[in-house]
Simulated assay, not measured.
Amino acid sequence: MRPPRTPGTPDTDLIVVGGGPAGCAAARMAASVGMRSVLVEPEALCRTLHRIPALDNVLGGHTSGPGLAGTIAAELRSTELCRLALGRYATEVRAHDDRVTVTLYTGLRLTAPHTVVATGTGPRRPRDVPWITAPVGPALPALWQADATEAEGRTLLVLGGDRPLGTFLRAHPATGTRLLAAYPEADDYKTEEIRHDPRVVLLPVRHLTLHPPAARLLDRSGGHRTVTADAVFLNLGNTPAAPPGDLVRDASGHCPPAAQHPRVLVAGDLRSACFQRVMTAFGSGTEAALRAYYSARDLPDENTP
């Protein structure tokens, strides 16, 4: 039996901020080595997986995001050493010499020897990118929100070449929807998987001026043209969603793990734009929890001098 908690005793062994694949993997691994954790998540566990109708790069036989999310949530809810704090979000993460303090929006402060921050990313809007000029008005929906049945036989203007383009097409292989994908040079490599799909018209641009449902394009050669669609959807990628406090950010807003305080471990999409995949999220969350375990017991890991 653990001794009773005193004012100087941490609330738990590990605080996990973020309940996506990386955060859930961290909490599950922590429990497997006997560490207690508190997982803080403002919405549902693995909520972003529900936006991925088709999966083709995860182990375990899951082919849809909602199916995988359900499996992860059920397993974590049965993990006795993990306490779920759902419907709550962190407003600050502070690292000290002997512990980390995570402050919740209610003002409650949680303490632990280490924290894993896996808050992922949030969607970019037209105002966040320099290559789009758009009127102020109602927020445009993201491509993952497009209803395939309603979109059947229609033409959709998609702003940005991010990977949900491929996800939409894989999830609906027989759809008659036509996608006009306008994207900047930085997205060129992202469009490779759908470049030869006859349902997609690629529109590489320097700039786009939006007047829904039409857009005025300045193409890479300096020419202008206007395109019209039945609806407009966003596909601009994501921006890091790190909580305020002592996290160290790079120029893009991501939080490189090696730059953080030793008691703050970063996992999942928050680390870098280069490794934003479900499988890499699982691995990074698991690794972060093990690093906390080794550190708490003064055990060396492979990167310890």
Rank of each mutant, 00 (worst) to 15 (best):
N238A: 15
G161T: 05
T9I: 02
G166K: 10
A134I: 02
D197S: 09
D219P: 08
L110G: 02
S64T: 03
L68N: 01
T167Q: 07
R163E: 15
Y293A: 01
A174K: 09
L108V: 06
R125K: 12
D246R: 04
P173V: 06
G120I: 11
R51M: 11
Q145F: 08
S272I: 10
P21I: 00
L169Q: 07
A288Y: 00
L76I: 09
H114W: 08
L76H: 02
P7C: 10
G70H: 06
C82H: 03
T191P: 12
G285P: 00
V40G: 03
P173E: 08
T91H: 02
R199G: 00
P243M: 09
P164S: 05
L236A: 04
R109T: 13
G19E: 03
Y293Q: 01
L202K: 09
D197L: 08
F275P: 01
A214V: 12
R5H: 15
D230S: 08
Q276C: 09
G160C: 05
E43V: 08
A281H: 03
P305M: 12
G153Y: 10
G8W: 11
T101K: 03
P212K: 15
V16H: 02
P164K: 05
T71Y: 08
G245Y: 05
C82Y: 03
R5P: 04
A281K: 04
Q260L: 01
G237C: 14
V17C: 06
A242W: 10
V33D: 01
P21F: 01
H50V: 03
K190Q: 15
A73K: 04
T115Y: 01
V136P: 12
W131I: 09
A95I: 06
G161S: 05
D128L: 12
Y294D: 11
Y294R: 15
R249W: 02
N235H: 13
C24D: 00
G153M: 05
P66E: 08
T48S: 13
T280S: 12
G60T: 02
T9S: 07
G176I: 04
V100G: 12
G245L: 03
L49I: 01
A25K: 01
P42V: 06
Y189L: 12
R154I: 13
D97Y: 05
L55G: 03
L165A: 14
L110N: 02
R199W: 04
